[in-house]
Design a protein around this nucleic acid. Sequence first.
RNA 1: GGGCCCGUAGCUUAGCCUGGUGGAGCGUUCGGCUGAUAACCGAAAGGUCCUGGGUUCAAAUCCCAGCGGGCCCA
Length: 1062
Amino acid sequence: MGKPGRLEKTYMPQVFEEDVMKLWDTEEIYEEIRAKSIGKPKFYFLDGPPYPSSGVPHIGTAWNKVLKDAIIRYKRMKGFWVWDKPGYDTHGLPIEVAVEKNLRLKTKKDIVEKVGISSFIDECRKLALCNATEMSANFKDLGVSLDWKNPYYTLTSSYIESAWWLIKRAWEKGLLSRGLKVVWWCPRCETVLSDYEVTEYRELSDPSIYVMFPVKGRPGEYLLVWTTTPWTLPANVALMVHPDLTYVEVDVGGKKVILLKERVGAVISRAVEEYRILREFPGRALLGIEYIPPLLEEVPLQGKLKNSHKVVLSDKYVKPTEGTGIVHMAPGHGEEDYEVAKEYGLPIICPVDERGEFTVEAGKYNGLSVREANKIIIGDLKKKNLLFYSETIVHRYPVCWRCKTPLVLRATVQWYIRVSNLKERFIEEAEKVEWIPQWALMRFKNWLKELRDWVVSRQRYWGIPLPIWECSKCGNIAVIGSLKELERLVGAPINLRDLHRPWVDQITFKCSKCGNSMKRVEDVLDVWFDSGVAFYASLGYPMNKDLFEKLEPVDFITEGHDQIAGWFFSLLRAGIIGFNRAPYKCVLMHGYMLDEHGREMHKSLGNYVAPTEVVEKYGRDTLRFWLLQNTIWEDARFNWRSIEQVFRDLHILWNVYVFASTYMNIDGYDPLKHGLEDVEENIQPEDRWILSRLNRLIRESSECMEKYHVHEATRMLREFIVEDVSHWYIRLIRRRIWVEGEDPLKDSAYATLYEVLKKYLILLAPIAPFITEKLYQEMIRPAEPNLPKSIHMLEWPDVEEKWINERLENLMNIIREIVELSASARMRRKIKMRQPLPVVYLLTDEDDVKEAASVFKRILMEQVNVKNVSVMGRAELSRFRVKRAKPRISVIGPELRGLAPQVIAFINENSREIAEKIEREGEVEVMLQSGERIVISEKHVEITEEDVEHYVVQEAPWGYVILDVRFDWRARAEGLARDIVRRVQYMRKEMDLPVEAYIKLHVVCPDSESRKMLEEFKDYICEETRTREFSISVGDYGKRYGDYCKDWDIDGKIFEITVLVE
RNA sequence: GGGCCCGUAGCUUAGCCUGGUGGAGCGUUCGGCUGAUAACCGAAAGGUCCUGGGUUCAAAUCCCAGCGGGCCCA
């Protein structure tokens, strides 16, 4: 025995959302849901670990997490055991850089010398965990229901050990090697950056120079070369030309210069006006030509190189669109150069150190940083008369994503995993995955085309230590896959604080080959390695195999489109290296959150909006709902207005529940006694309609959630509650609900409304968990105390197919159309809705419309406010709308001259008949009083249509809606009565009277006519306004029958209404 | 320079896959309705559906090229 509870009148999320959260905590709702789900089918969701460089999540990160939350909540309600461990990607350069800043360290050397590695690492750990904890609190505050008490952190010993396992796997498979790799290098951080870390570009101003390389043994002949990095010239070993393109020798002021024919115009004319082409030849003719390196004197190393300083061929890397067609090769500073150099057996040199400064090998330039050496090198070339032309260009150049230092390319010895030859496998596995949207696969494959070997080593501190030990004497290598293995080699248990540097560096053991000491290679792992192994490492595999075997593969991940080249890829890579297959089944790619102009949101740009700002203004559900209604895979623009709109929609939703709960509570409606099945024989067509809509919503929103099209489900849910329930259904059932006392039609309305509102809450719960919980607790549970203690413990509703009735929905659409057209008809005649009219005519030949009018006759009469509905065929239109012929005087006058006035008068008198005849036959012959016969045709008249008096005709797609707008004294009286009722209701509301309270009423009328009218409808007024005593007087304004008294103007007459509380 | 996505009313956007009279909300103005509503209904104003070509009886929708924005890569 229960009845629905009553709700606060106003939607105030800021107040109750906190309470709801407290309820979840104290009642341990989340824990209970998890406990109950064990044993059900698994759903392995893997959280893409955010980087905790700050504790406050970006609004885009909030989108990401809320999206995940909506999906896992849905899956839980569908009866899955959902794996929901959140994670944090805690290692890497951003944390190091932040700590360096905090500790005021300027260089990598400072870390060792000023604070020492161990305290540096402690600071990194502290910062990462502190930010992660703050982030967790922020996510939890948005209602994100992940396992916040047990996140996975990539910094734990267990995680590190799991990562080691994969390195070992790669080693065993022969994929792990050490060798020279040309890599992007940050001179400030003094470490390698992988391809996907090179993400920041700046507009930099750099020299663009054309250098003349003297051909050996042919004085006065030069090979012309273009470069924007003069600092790579000390590392020059050869020149590349295209074998098949045409090159020319040009006479420029007596010097012979060789370059690509196509580029002569663009290059030579920059420097000189006059030149002469001497001869042309294919690029291959230049093969083997030797030259004198332009910096031979300045850089002694240049003189020592063997098998170098000659022309080689490449059809791949020489482009006819830029430069001179002769490419300067510095294999130590360019990957393409490196590739070709290896092919020709050329030497590879890199006279630049970790800090981006020239080494002793660079002779004159020793100690200079490369960018400052540019000027000096250009000066030297000029002195030697080898500079053909020089200018400055502004181009996009990569900078370090953390410290914004321009990067350099360096050939360095690195550890890498050879995956470039596994390209086909990667693509094969990617194709087995379900990608949402589908074109994400295209993008992913596109990225895979560029697949390169994975340089995994980093010359830093805060990361997973590379588990590789090397013998200092014989170079023997040991790759360690677990702590146990390490202990076995050491021969003793290892008791380290943790596995990070510097502690792990202290572990040494005897070389199995020569007996000398094995020391760890100092590098740490690329952070992308960390997150890439999350699919097994976050479950403790391989130390703990059970969980992984139960859960894998990952059923679902979702991240932003930047993760195509990031996490989606690093997971796949780790999956293939470790298990030879893709680790996930389904990937949902979401968009970016941009500002209202479509630009990225950044604190530094001043367009940044924190999620908390939105929460403070409109609450958590508003933010969630707004985030979730954005098309998932498109970029979303932040926009306050659209957020306000969502807030308004939630307000409507709230009010729907306030309305329902208020009346159900007053009437003591008990859903357990009067459920849908109990009232079935009293169910009305409009009830069947909303139940059809409800079940269609269940069906369609479930389909959307299954496809992870959360935004479509979200929009549907808005549409349903706002358009179908609030705007329409409640409007239709109002009168049924206002009936006092026991009433079967009221009960069936309550039963229907209750069913709709209860199921709707469940559907909305994954999207707006707060408001749904609040409404559930305050309205639903008091009525049904045996229900679970949280809405989030309910099962997702099944579709009840028997209720879905497409035809009925179509009929209702027709009814809505008729009501709208009638409203518009009244508007045209300025007749207010409250004024009852005798009849609405529906003219149609369509069966649907006829059926709609009959099924929904009562609804139609109420909503159109007419006493009757009459249906007839379209042909009857002529009764309501007539044709008129208007004389065109400008035609008739000149043509008929003297007869014109007679003709005009005749047309006016017989306007309708003439119009009809001309429409039918094209002309009409008339006989004038004077005896003449005149033929009138279309040109003489303008044919118009006009509604017959008392009727207003509106066109509908299927016919006409016609209102009879006549009303008699009684109808006018009824209209007046309704006007009075409406004013009284307004006053009751102003007085904040309880809905069920009774009143006394006095009305002062302007005249006795009005008094008579009100007396005629006295009973009606009393019932509508809950009036026990009703008195009427005439003319005695200002007499004050009570405290609450108001003058109202109704159609220009003043009525003074007094409301007295009993 | 390459790949992918987006471009529709002042703003936010649906429709595009599968061609057939471009819708909605916000905002403005006027009118109406209202004892759930911080609502709602009607009317008015507001559109080169980014531009240009093509296919077609017919293009916002399909194709091509370009422009602008975003992401990724080089």
